[in-house]
Write a protein that binds this DNA or RNA. Structure first.
Lengths: 106, 106
DNA sequence: CTTCAATATAGTAATATTGCTATATTGCGA
DNA sequence: TCGCAATATAGCAATATTACTATATTGAAG
């Protein structure tokens, strides 16, 4: 039905899945890569970097913001986005621990 | 349109996004956690562990298989799934390097 | 105050995803 | 062979996602 039965899962499973879901689009990966490379802050040179319309980019930025992966501060008329350091670190650990769960199975 | 403009991105961006997309559902996270905990191989006790119908679980398993995160070997009438070690390791590195890109910005 | 530039939101259309039930497929044992 | 058990696939319905154009919002400059 396109709707996920969220009530059936643990908090951690939902956290992990939601994090991955936010990262699950190349435009959002591209935005993050850009922010990682470009000293952390930027507004909308993205329209020049990623081949999507401004509103579409705005939507992707919203998804990333809701996931806490970036934060945007108002800077006059424009918004300056940067990596959300704290959440980024949490996400890094979350993924790291997930992938690290594979140890000594046969 | 629900359709992603894949042609606009780098190989790496698409790889990263596709990996995350495959992980972007709690049922798939739950399946992987189960496989990680349960010595690597299992068929369909999943129906007893995750509250979804057998066909729905089968679909999720397919997504994970297509992503290479698990592999299933036929074992008589049933299929025995386990973590796809090589791809898992690649995915771990992929994610690790992605999250590691944040170094010494301000 | 008016205008412009930068974003965000509304509205819309197309496709993707999720999940179900019903049905096929496939191997094993009687 | 026949039927059962374990999966997979087909078909369907509902919701989510992606992306567009058009429009609203908001701050700065004149």
């Amino acid at each position: 039905m396109g709707v996920t039965k969220t009530e059936a899962y643990t908090e951690r499973q939902l956290r992990r899945a939601n994090l991955c879901k936010a990262l699950g689009h190349p435009a959002r990966i591209a935005i993050l890569e850009h922010l990682l490379a470009a000293d952390c802050c930027i507004c909308q040179d993205l329209t020049g970097v990623i081949d999507l319309s401004q509103p579409t980019l705005s939507r992707h930025l919203l998804v990333l913001r809701e996931a806490g992966l970036i934060c945007g501060t108002v800077k006059g008329n424009s918004r300056s986005y940067c990596i959300g350091r704290e959440r980024w670190e949490i996400a890094r650990k979350e993924m790291s621990s997930f992938f690290g769960e594979l140890s000594a199975c046969k």
